[in-house]
C-alpha cells in the first residue's frame, strides 16, 4: 500500500534506456525477413515495453493488490475480446478453404 513509494531517478533512466533500445531493435528487426515471425517478434517487444511502462513508470510494481488486479483484469478482458472474436473469424476460413 505504498502509493508514496519514491523510486530512485536511476530506475526511471534505466527503464527509459531499455524502452528506447527496444524501439531501435524492433525497427531494425522489421527489415529482416523472418516470415510470419516478424509480427510475433514485434508484438513480443511491444509487450516487453508496455510491461516496463506499467510496472515502473506507472508504479504498478509498488502498488496495492487491488491496483494490480485491476490491471490484470483489463488485460484479461481485452484478451476475451480479441481471443473469442478471432476464434470466430479464424474458424470461418476453415469452411471456405476446403
Amino acid at each position: 500500500m505504498s502509493s508514496q513509494h519514491i523510486l530512485p531517478r536511476r530506475t526511471y533512466f534505466l527503464v527509459f534506456l531499455a524502452l528506447e533500445v527496444l524501439t531501435v531493435v524492433t525497427a531494425l528487426v522489421a527489415s529482416i525477413d523472418l516470415g510470419a515471425a516478424n509480427t510475433v517478434v514485434a508484438l513480443c517487444i511491444a509487450v516487453t515495453k508496455s510491461t516496463l511502462v506499467v510496472l515502473f513508470f506507472m508504479h504498478v510494481k509498488y502498488s496495492s493488490k487491488m491496483t494490480k488486479l485491476t490491471v490484470i483484469l483489463g488485460v484479461f478482458w481485452l484478451m476475451i475480446l480479441l481471443g473469442m472474436t478471432m476464434t470466430d473469424y479464424v474458424s470461418r476460413l476453415w469452411s471456405t478453404v476446403r
Binding site: 524492433t26 522489421a30 527489415s31 529482416i32 525477413d33 516478424n38 514485434a42 508484438l43 511491444a46 511502462v53
Partner: peptide, 16 residues
C-alpha cells in the same frame, strides 16, 4: 502504451 502497440502494428508490417 497505446502508441507502443500502434507503432509496430501500423508502421512495421512486412518492412523487409
Amino acid at each position: 502504451l497505446v502508441w507502443i502497440y500502434l507503432y509496430p502494428l501500423l508502421y512495421l508490417i512486412d518492412r523487409y
